[in-house]
């Protein structure tokens, strides 16, 4: 990480802390914002957040590792989360999974080389009546079939 990048990130985190407050209860909101913008929370960012909230870096790391939407390692620009829970599973989630892995050439849990996509499973996301369903970033796509799923991929930046 270059010095000016670090400075920019520090400044950004300082603004977030100002916005949400220095109390530990703002931790999750700060992490979510950093994750949204940078697709992960770098070790430097974690330590900056820890410093500004007066907690230990390992506590920030611990919280990140607990929540499945937060990541310490860089993710793709588009996070594709395919629901793997029972209703979507019965509605044909496996076919969508196969289509996505074939199309992107990566397995679930991996990121494409161009950092455009990360494939992940997620547990029930509340679209059970319209499965199979997936989230791309914060958008939801339902009643998927393999063709539709692959076409949606092409639409994202």
């Amino acid at each position: 990480m270059l010095v000016y990048e670090k400075n920019a990130l520090s400044e950004e985190i300082e603004l977030l802390v100002e916005k949400y407050g220095v109390d530990r209860s703002s931790l999750l909101q700060i992490l979510q914002d950093v994750q949204r913008k940078h697709n992960h929370i770098s070790d430097f960012a974690q330590q900056e957040i820890a410093r500004l909230l007066s907690i230990h870096p390992v506590e920030v790391n611990s919280v990140i590792s607990f929540y499945s939407f937060l990541h310490s390692q860089p993710q793709g620009r588009n996070s594709i989360k395919l629901c793997q829970t029972i209703s979507c599973d019965m509605a044909g989630k496996q076919k969508i999974e196969d289509a996505l892995t074939r199309e992107l050439g990566i397995s679930f849990g991996e990121t494409t080389k161009d950092k455009k996509y990360t494939l992940e499973h997620t547990n029930c996301m509340g679209m059970c009546d319209q499965g199979p369903a997936m989230l791309i970033n914060d958008k939801v796509f339902t009643r998927l079939d393999p063709e539709k799923a692959v076409n949606i991929l092409k639409e994202v930046e």
Binding site: Q46, H56, P57, V58, E59, S62, S65, Y67
Partner: peptide, 25 residues
């Protein structure tokens, strides 16, 4: 580490069956 000594280099990491005690990253 965190409470008694306030050093804070150990915490639980990950979740569910993957949970383990670890250091920063």
């Amino acid at each position: 580490c965190i409470d008694l000594q306030e050093v804070g280099c150990l915490e639980a990491l990950d979740r569910g069956h993957e949970t383990h005690v670890g250091t920063f990253l």
